[in-house]
Design a protein around this nucleic acid. Structure first.
Lengths: 129, 129
DNA sequence: TCACCATTTCAAATTTTTTTGAAATTATTC
DNA sequence: GAATAATTTCAAAAAAATTTGAAATGGTGA
């Protein structure tokens, strides 16, 4: 067996072209080891926060200008508590920050948040079916 | 009232600095209208697919080399059906594609998938708490 | 054609995320 | 220092995503 024993595996005869590529890459255990698991976890965290319509709308809006929560509730059609929930997610991920001005909390993008929106606007990924 | 009536709103007196910025941006309705809702929806779809550890591991793995499903089950520790579920999400988003080789389906990245992984590897976003 | 293998599909069970509304916080004004 | 405004927090309810295992599909070779 080429690469150890998998949970669900019987005998394997992987296509020659794939095996060849595998040899060139230094073998299965090498390929397996080179997965950057820690980096992947970090990426996952950020992607989770970005995978929500409401949060993206907030992010795009804040890329235009600073806003207090009442503006964001009006913009997104969300209740305060809902808005607040999403804001906390964005904040935890380091994408936005808030400063207090009297009774108002004014939210704005962090440099990290700004760089993300810039990417989106630049690349506009297209999804096909 | 500056900008219409929100669901939860009483009287508002937004901080002067924010109002000033708002005027410079052409007023509230202008800022509101300029949110690219369609683009945001597209971004959301892709982010949703990318916001999962298993799928990211598959994506990173495929950026190293083509793999059949049995390899991916071994790599991720997932059952076939679980793997298949995640593969279909990645495929629907246009990030990976499959070609059949006898009994085997060999998955690989699309150009779009490749460009995404390239970005991740380049920017390695950091999350702070 | 039959048995077998790699993989997908389906529906039910489980887990995770989001929504809701009421109550708590914090600052402000009188 | 009470009343009020903007916002957050909390716990329960609802919705969405994932996991599971059994059954289906489609290719292969005898």
């Amino acid at each position: 067996m080429l690469w150890g024993y998998g949970v669900n595996m019987k005998k394997l005869e992987i296509p020659e072209e794939v095996k060849k590529e595998l040899r060139e890459k230094g073998g299965w255990s090498n390929v397996k080891k080179s997965l950057p698991l820690k980096e992947i976890k970090e990426v996952e965290k950020v992607m989770k926060v970005l995978s929500c319509d409401t949060r993206l709308r907030i992010l795009y809006a804040l890329s235009e200008q600073r806003m207090c929560v009442c503006m964001l509730t009006e913009l997104t059609g969300c209740s305060y508590s809902k808005c607040s929930y999403h804001l906390s997610k964005l904040k935890d991920a380091g994408l936005i920050k808030a400063t207090r001005k009297g009774n108002y909390l004014i939210y704005s993008l962090t440099p990290f948040g700004r760089s993300i929106v810039r990417h989106f606007k630049k690349y506009k990924p297209e999804v096909k079916k």
